[in-house]
Design a protein around this nucleic acid. Structure first.
Lengths: 200, 200
DNA sequence: TCGAAATGTAAGTAACCGCTTACATTGTAA
DNA sequence: TTACAATGTAAGCGGTTACTTACATTTCGA
């Protein structure tokens, strides 16, 4: 590697390029020639690091599958009023999705290729968030702030509202939402959800 | 066509097979040889009906893109109590999605191939539903049943909850939800949403 | 500075895919 | 029955793709 070059190793640059192209064109649509060119390396070098395109794809999944959960967010949000806390959680959730939009695109379009693997990645991400949020709800139920409801279903409903908003905006329409729109959406969604879960 | 054979024409069987395989394997993953074999016709016959694979794909989109709206549902639901009406709308929405799951899979994975066309199909489907539901909400707001909120955002939130449930169950996990689960999910989601939109 | 490891260049291979051509067979309407 | 339209069989063509081989060049630590 030339001095002053990118800090990333050859393998890391290959993985990053593969992530980009698999995301944009799908597994079959992204060719190894294209990936290596995009990574700025020779095609043969790609095959020196990865024994096959299939294995490259697997390593892309493994390398980028980690998604930050919102678990660390709960403690700092527990002191906020309910609706403000929900707004912060929603915003962080949307930011997390956006930061991993390439992985999400891959998961959406390559589901049939790697069902068990992608299923696992999806579950470890979603389940973590759902359970964390459900625990937050349970705490507020015990404190008498929220009425009785199934906390896990409620968590799924909450995340579902925002996921489908994200999906429509970022994946289907390709529109970048303006900050004002985003705030408005969060406010309206949180309002409905809070109204439906708070004790009267 | 032999007598006593399938009622469908050769072209229709080709389109149906193409829908199945494009949905299961993606545009690039489904070969013309495989599609014709699955349709029970010769590969050359496929190219007699469709000038290219690309045109076959376009005709699949055109043929199966029409999604029933829920517009016709509103009148018969207007007499029901709010929560029951929401439950019926949600159920019908989920049934519609399920009946067109192959098209939805194609739209999700081939977004990059036909962005404008798929975007159009998506919009004509979703926008119709959103606007219909928003009108229903407006009527109830004027009647003093619902509190004030942005009816379109609310409609998006409502559909979003159920779409993401559908997506998680049918597309990501491949699980068929049992009827009991479905009823429970609808009940919980509708409860939250109704609680957040009804006037206290 | 020197030698090994990493990377590049060039060429090629076997398989596959979309699509075509030429010709034979079958179904059906007049 | 005949003529025509629809479909089938078989073979192949040109292009692409994943992947390999052989060899030259660069990088860089010891």
């Amino acid at each position: 590697m030339k001095t002053g070059d990118n800090i990333l190793t050859t393998k890391e640059r290959a993985l990053a390029a593969a992530l980009r192209l698999f995301s944009a064109k799908g597994y079959l649509g992204a060719t190894t020639k294209e990936i290596s060119k995009s990574a700025g390396i020779a095609e043969v070098t790609l095959f020196r690091h990865f024994s096959s395109k299939e294995q490259l794809f697997e390593e892309v999944l493994n390398t980028y599958s980690f998604l930050p959960t919102i678990k660390s967010l709960i403690p700092e949000v527990e002191k906020l009023p309910y609706e403000e806390a929900l707004a912060v959680i929603a915003l962080r959730f949307l930011e997390t999705l956006k930061s991993r939009i390439e992985m999400i695109r891959i998961m959406q379009s390559e589901m049939s290729r790697y069902p068990e693997k992608i299923h696992k990645i999806y579950n470890s991400f979603i389940d973590g968030i759902i359970r964390t949020l459900a625990l937050y709800f349970e705490g507020l139920q015990e404190a008498g702030v929220l009425k009785e409801f199934d906390t896990e279903y409620a968590a799924r409903a909450f995340m579902g509202m925002f996921y489908s908003f994200f999906s429509a905006q970022e994946i289907l329409l390709g529109k970048k939402y303006r900050k004002a729109d985003l705030d408005l959406v969060i406010k309206e969604y949180v309002n409905i959800f809070a109204g439906g879960t708070l004790k009267k």
